[in-house]
């Protein structure tokens, strides 16, 4: 009884989910400190709703693959297919090569692309599906006192799990086939990159899905932007091999968070051989190549700044708009 008695005069704005017992719920919009508080209290809220999150993620994954012939292999088929196509076009037809690779490692460009595709597919899936999640689950928001921020989080988690599957296939492929050497210690970066990537997707999905509640054109725009973004990001091309023609656009590449993410992934997954490929003696080939193990951290740090900033913006926007959701969806 004491906590209730204590807070009997406390009042707060609206937030989705069951209202806190004994607290006045008023019409006022959330204050700045409340927004900040919620920004940092996410892990606590996640913990409180861990059952809901776990069950929703499981449900989503099950619903997607149950009843299909390939079942859990489906998340792998798409990237594999892309990998084969691009590997063939670039390595065999266009004869692109990464310098200084030992004989028999020509497939490196395929590996290089695959690392990029895996990550891009995850982000794209999370953002595109995430953008529509509040509208799709409008009935839950309207009819159940439901913590709405769980919805984009679920989607971010689902696509991260899918990414894990692809990673597992990649690592198994490295261990069992001679295509590429399995990553060594650099593999320790994987969980960290995955976590930062999750923050990025969640923040992005929160921002877009909130926008989508008020402006239904958002999803359409997101679809286009994500397609363009795929080509802008060095996923299927190597900036270092572009020569002078890329020079005027270097700034764009550097300010693209996905470039840093993809580079961090490549550094972590492709290991020492990858670094060797970009160095000649002590000299690093190309001015923008991610060629030292330390650079993985560098790229990740830059990406993490983007991720946290996006999460901050997305969460603030969500927190400020949330009280209108049930009226709009």
């Amino acid at each position: 009884m004491t906590p209730q008695a204590e807070s009997s005069t406390a009042s707060g704005g609206f937030s989705s989910g069951s209202p806190a017992p004994g607290r006045w719920v008023t019409s006022r919009p959330p204050r700045v400190f409340e927004v900040v508080q919620r920004f940092f209290s996410l892990p606590k809220r996640m913990l409180a709703h861990r059952d809901l999150i776990a069950i929703s993620v499981k449900r989503d994954l099950e619903a997607r693959f149950s009843g299909t012939m390939l079942g859990w292999l489906w998340p792998l088929v798409h990237p594999m297919f892309l990998f084969v196509v691009y590997y063939f076009i670039f390595t065999k037809l266009l004869n692109f090569k990464i310098p200084h690779l030992p004989e028999g490692q020509e497939s490196a460009l395929g590996i290089f692309m695959f690392c990029g595709i895996m990550s891009y597919a995850t982000i794209s899936e999370g953002v595109v599906r995430g953008a529509n999640t509040f509208i799709e689950n409008g009935n839950l928001i309207k009819k159940l006192a439901f913590p709405a921020e769980i919805l984009p989080l679920n989607i971010s988690l689902v696509c991260s799990v899918t990414h894990l599957f692809a990673l597992a296939v990649f690592l198994l492929g490295c261990l069992l086939t001679p295509i590429w050497e399995a990553p060594g210690l650099s593999a320790l970066w994987i969980p960290l990159i995955l976590a930062v990537q999750l923050v990025f997707i969640y923040g992005f999905a929160l921002l877009l899905s909130t926008l989508q509640v008020f402006l239904r054109d958002t999803v359409q725009v997101v679809g286009i932007v994500m397609t363009v973004w795929m080509f802008v990001t060095p996923i299927f091309w190597v900036p270092e091999l572009m020569g002078e023609s890329i020079q005027p656009y270097i700034a764009i590449i550097y300010n693209n968070p996905l470039y840093h993410l993809v580079s961090a992934w490549r550094g972590a997954l492709m290991g020492d051989l990858f670094i060797e490929a970009w160095t000649e003696g002590d000299q690093v080939l190309g001015p923008y190549a991610p060629v030292s193990t330390a650079a993985i951290g560098g790229h990740l740090a830059i990406f993490a700044i983007w991720a946290v900033a996006l999460y901050g913006v997305g969460y603030a926007f969500f927190t400020l708009s949330e009280r209108r959701f049930a009226d709009e969806v």
Partner: peptide, 12 residues
């Protein structure tokens, strides 16, 4: 608690 009030307040 699914929608927010426009004026007034409540407590449960």
């Amino acid at each position: 608690g699914t929608t927010a009030p426009t004026v007034g307040r409540y407590r449960i």
